[in-house]
Amino acid sequence: MTQYVFYFLSFLAILSALMVVFSKNPIHSVLYLVLTFFAIAGHYLLLNAQFLAIVHIVVYAGAIMVLFLYVLMLLNLNVDAEPVKKNWVKFAGVLSGGLLMLTLVATFHKAETMPLIQDNPEIGVTANLGKILFGEFALPFEISSVLLLSAMIGAIMLSKKEVKK
């Protein structure tokens, strides 16, 4: 049962990820990306990481993608308005993308596959996750929060209008 769900979710994730790239309309791309996030959240649920799954949906699908849609709707991009790229740019893009794929395939081909071991199936529960984050990993957690804070202050500084003297 779990296996079929896994295959279904993987199929959905890969298909919608491909559709993100192949869609002509940027709005469709964003919507397919939202679908991809849902599929990935499903994978988290299969791994017993409920908190991660729901936060993934709240943050990515619920907030970040809404902002993406917001910007795209304001820009109102369509096929006519999009600048046509030069041929050598397209060629370079295909070449570097192909190289990246080659590297990734080679890496994962050689990689050992290990069965997933979960010492504690309750590990994804919010209380346990919180204890680990604030206990064992308190320092990295705090450092990343400082990083986010500085990014936030930077964004506010950039968007603030300069006061004329």
Partner: peptide, 25 residues
């Protein structure tokens, strides 16, 4: 009765705007 129930409610409300956005666009 999910043990992430509050977050689930929060997530669903944040998804509610998609219908409005997609329909409006």
């Amino acid at each position: 009765d999910l043990n992430i129930g509050v977050l689930y409610i929060f997530g669903v409300t944040s998804l509610g705007v998609y219908g409005i956005m997609i329909g409006g666009w």
